[in-house]
């Protein structure tokens, strides 16, 4: 049962990996401009040099062959060297992935804890104003505006803005994410509180704290699905936030690789991200089934 779920997930991940890498490569190839444009800019190489570069990058082959070659290279582990990053693709992608993982895990954990705390205040302690105020403030500005605002406040108060460090992007993501996730958690909890079993608990004289925990346990699966979703998006790159603070994560990597048409890095990026996201989906599905007793019987 458990293993069949895993097998199913792996098969899906495999298909996603193939389709996503092919699509990303095709999009980058069909968008105007190629690595030779990036290398030579306003100039043109000689015919001989152009041919040499094209054949080295495999650009002279038909498009479907290029895709097949990249597929083969993904699975043989030969990810090649970046055209512009001066490093092997695996190394480039791994460094960015590590940065994004840090950012994603920390942002998700902290945001979730903050949201649960706020929900506790409003559901079990009847303090509604503070949570509402915080979530309204948080969701009043798009993430990128929060980033700039936090940066400006730090600069004007002469606090060091740690460009390239994790502190600021993390703060931005937590501050901007709290609003949405609190609202989602809150609406799920409200729905749970209207379910008959909570009424039964109340009738049994359970304390409000325990009822809150029961309700939380009840809604957590759906909540986690959404949270995992955003965690995945951050691993794939919190592009705007990373760009403002020059944080070298997957989002910045993607922007860099695309603007320099660094195909090996793009493919490496796509392969890595699809594997990670697929794994995350699988974990989230399994968690969901585990935490929701009713689904366990049905699947």
């Amino acid at each position: 049962m458990f293993w069949s779920l895993i097998a199913n997930g792996v098969a899906k991940a495999f298909a996603t990996l193939l389709i996503a890498t092919a699509l990303i490569y095709l999009i980058a190839r069909l968008f105007p401009g190629d690595p030779i444009t990036v290398l030579y800019g306003e100039q043109q190489p000689s015919e001989e040099v152009r041919k040499a570069i094209e054949s080295r990058l495999g650009l002279d082959k038909p498009l479907y062959m290029q895709v097949l070659i990249y597929w083969k290279r993904i699975f043989t582990g030969d990810w090649g060297r970046s055209i512009f990053f001066a490093e092997p693709v695996t190394q480039v992608v791994f460094k960015s992935l590590l940065n994004s993982l840090k950012l994603s895990i920390l942002a998700t954990v902290i945001t979730t804890l903050v949201c649960i705390a706020l929900a506790y205040l409003s559901m079990a302690r009847d303090i509604a104003l503070l949570p509402t105020a915080i979530s309204t403030l948080s969701s009043s500005m798009p993430t990128s505006v929060w980033g700039v605002t936090i940066m400006a406040v730090l600069a004007l108060t002469k606090k060091p803005v740690g460009f390239g460090g994790i502190g600021l992007p993390l703060t931005t993501l937590v501050v901007a994410g709290t609003g949405v996730f609190y609202k989602i958690l809150q609406s799920l909890l409200e729905k749970a509180y209207s379910e008959p079993f909570i009424g039964a608990y109340i009738a049994l004289g359970m304390t409000r704290n325990r009822i809150f925990l029961k309700a939380l346990r009840y809604v957590l699966p759906i909540y986690l699905t959404t949270v995992f979703y955003r965690a995945g998006l951050i691993i794939a790159g919190a592009m705007a936030t990373e760009a403002i603070f020059a944080y070298p994560g997957m989002g910045l990597l993607l922007l860099q690789a695309f603007s320099s048409r660094d195909y090996p890095v793009l493919i490496g990026w796509a392969a890595t991200v699809s594997i990670i996201l697929a794994t995350l989906n699988m974990v989230s599905d399994i968690l969901h089934i585990y935490m929701d007793p009713r689904l366990r019987g049905s699947s």
């Binding site: 899906k12 991940a13 298909a15 996603t16 389709i19 996503a20 699509l23 990303i24 095709l26 999009i27 980058a28 069909l30 968008f31 979703y229 995945g232 794939a236 790159g237 592009m239 989002g251 993607l254 695309f258 796509a270 991200v273 699809s274 996201l277 697929a278 989906n281």
Partner: peptide, 17 residues
């Protein structure tokens, strides 16, 4: 698989496509 693929491909790329 379809939605996982869309999810994997960043919005900027979808827009480019």
């Amino acid at each position: 698989i379809l939605f996982n693929t869309i999810y994997t491909i960043p919005g900027l790329f979808t827009a480019a496509a």
